[in-house]
Design a binder for these strands. Structure first.
Length: 566
RNA sequence: UCCGGGGUCGUUCAAUGGUAGGACAGCGGUUUUUGGUGCCGUAUAUAGGGGUUCGAAUCCUCUCCCCGGAACCA
């Protein structure tokens, strides 16, 4: 975190949710207790948007001394799977939040069913024999009243009998539903006799075939909250109109404790990023990406593989806060948190992505005629002295970045060109004496002379050079593969009003570069960590392949800006 | 069309009747054995009209714009 970030964090005023909770505590609502929950449906993997909900839920409970549990909203057997359950648990844990208590709405099916019978007996719910199309037609429209079902005034005893037979499996899927009897003329469409149970014979990943009827989200969510003792049920803005129904259900029931309260906040949107589980699933299905953990994906596992530190994601979420305004944050802000964290934590290594040979023509040979090899101790991380130094081999034949040499450089180019002296980081000052080209004019080799008096990279006479370049020794480097990523989506920008963002998938969102040269020691280190290749950006070492690196984010590149402006 | 939620620098989050502030992105400078990092400086905003008030981003009113809501999805 930069000082600017650090300084602004404590000054950040309470967002509206924290204000609300602080107020509740002051007034003694919920007996001063705070309990939240993060309630994903296990029908896909978590993405960066969920990370906001996770941090809001867990941090709020944390801040006020309450608890937050992970609860699976597993009320739809058709879409859910145990592999998603496992993946979500792992992702929440990776983000840094406790998963020792994992709860499931499906554990409450019996209690929720009993409460449904209660509503039926009280005449507040009825079995409807109509199909989905008829119910939808009768619901009416915005500004148009609904039509009451012909089964609406069926006797409670008859509904109860039918409801029990629904559970017993006597009726076909979709043939009947249990509906709440509220108000078919209500201006809020959610209150026009919503469906509470549907018949569905899908195999549930936890309850198996024990049930053929399943509660809908609205009929299960508030009830689960109440059973668990949740006080503050936080969700995203699109559930705003469901709040009246949430309250109505709870008001009808003999709850074991205080009635929980739903509060909505704006979901996270990011530029160049899609946060729709359905669409991410389509990216995977259509093979635009390799899988849910593809480093281009905004999934938590994709970001992790790409080298995003969990702490950077948490800090970003804390910084943007919560509000009810629909907005789309710039991904550059997230990336700045990633860079800030990585700048502090990642060790520096030298690598050359697009190698060109640099030959030191005055480099000495040993007694046996072979080129001399020297070893330099180079600082691992200038931001953290405790990271120490490493020994790097140096000799007369090196690789440098092709971009770091220009035969005919423009004014603002500070790197190697004929006649100019630069520093090879941690090694020597070298002066370019010439270069070789192939028949088509491509530079094939750069020639230079080193100054033996500048061992370690500083000149005894105090002369300065304008550039310090990274390098690898040709005889000591190893070949590696580096994956560079563009934004998956070209647009998805603020104010953009395109159609389906999937039309916008960047066709060349990944560039694989082989033949890159990296320090030999990198091949021997375990994968998973992130290193900074000097001036090239941050790279995540692939967990499975020690010679594959994913670029996490690039560095801020002033030279690129200069070229752009020219 | 009806109901609900929103509208503050380019972007985003603050300021709740009393100096419109921060971050990211810009721009200018500076330090630096990474054109990285750090540091210093700087421009840019209250959707519009009317009203209340000594004083309005904030309260009232009219208008405009954006988002959400009519699954047996969540």
């Amino acid at each position: 975190m930069t000082d600017a970030h650090a300084a602004s964090a404590p000054e950040r005023p309470a967002d509206f949710i924290r204000e609300l909770v602080a107020n509740d505590i002051e007034q003694g609502t919920f007996g001063g207790r705070v309990q939240t929950r993060f309630p994903p449906e296990p029908n896909g993997y978590l993405h960066i948007g969920h990370a906001k909900a996770i941090t809001v839920d867990f941090e709020l409970a944390n801040e006020f001394g309450g608890v937050c549990n992970l609860r699976f909203d597993d009320t739809n057997p058709d879409t859910e799977d145990t592999s998603y359950v496992d993946g979500i648990i792992a992702d929440v844990a990776w983000l840094g939040y406790p998963v020792d208590t994992v709860l499931y709405a499906s554990d409450y099916f019996e209690q929720i069913y009993e409460w449904a019978e209660l509503l039926v007996m009280q005449g507040k719910a009825y079995v409807d024999d109509q199909d989905a199309d008829s119910i939808r037609l009768q619901r009416g429209g915005y500004g148009n009243p609904g039509v009451e079902s012909p089964f609406r005034d069926r006797a409670p005893e008859e509904s109860l009998d039918l409801f029990r037979r629904m559970r017993a499996g006597e009726f076909a899927d979709g043939s009947r539903t249990l509906r709440a009897k509220i108000d078919m003329q209500h201006e809020n469409m959610q209150l026009r006799d919503p469906v509470m149970y549907r018949i569905r014979r899908g195999h549930h990943h936890r309850t198996g075939d024990a049930w053929v009827i399943y509660p809908t989200y609205d009929w299960a969510h508030g009830q689960s909250d109440a059973i668990e003792g949740v006080t503050h049920s936080l969700c995203t803005l699109e559930f705003d109109s469901h709040r009246a129904l949430y309250d109505w259900y709870l008001e009808q029931l003999p709850l074991p404790g205080d009635q929980p309260r739903q509060t909505e906040f704006a979901r996270l949107n990011l530029t160049h990023t899609i946060t729709s589980k359905r669409k991410l699933a389509q990216l995977v299905h259509d093979r635009h990406v390799d899988g849910w953990d593809d480093p281009r994906m905004p999934t938590l596992r994709g970001l992790r593989r790409r080298g995003y530190p969990a702490s950077a994601i948490r800090q970003f979420m804390a910084f943007i806060g919560v509000a009810r305004t629909n907005s789309r944050h710039q991904i550059e802000l997230l990336e700045s948190f990633v860079r800030t964290e990585l700048n502090r934590s990642s060790q520096r290594r030298m690598a050359v992505l697009d190698p060109i040979e640099l030959v030191l023509t005055n480099w000495p040979a040993d007694a046996d005629g072979a080129p001399t090899v020297e070893h330099f101790d180079i600082v691992n991380n200038p931001e953290n002295e405790a990271d120490g130094t490493r020994s790097v081999a140096f000799s007369g034949r090196l690789f440098i970045e092709r971009d770091d040499f220009m035969a005919d450089p423009p004014k603002q180019f500070f790197r190697l060109s004929p006649g100019r002296e630069v520093r090879l980081r941690g090694a020597y000052l070298v002066t370019c004496t010439g270069f070789e080209t192939s028949d088509d004019g491509t530079v094939t080799r750069v020639l230079a002379e080193y100054d033996p008096a500048t061992q370690g990279g500083s000149a005894p006479d105090g002369r300065k050079v304008k550039s310090t370049m990274h390098w690898v020794s040709a005889d000591h480097a190893v070949d590696a593969t580096v994956a560079l990523y563009e934004r998956l989506f070209a647009a998805v920008a603020p104010g953009e009003v395109t159609g389906d963002p999937l039309d916008d998938v960047h066709p060349n969102s990944r560039e694989i570069r082989t033949g890159c040269k990296v320090e030999a020691a990198l091949a021997a280190t375990p994968g998973g960590h992130v290193v900074q290749f000097e001036r090239l950006g941050y790279f995540a070492h692939d967990a499975d392949n020690p010679l594959l690196f994913h670029r996490t984010v690039g560095l801020r590149d002033e030279w690129a800006n200069i070229q752009k402006r020219a």
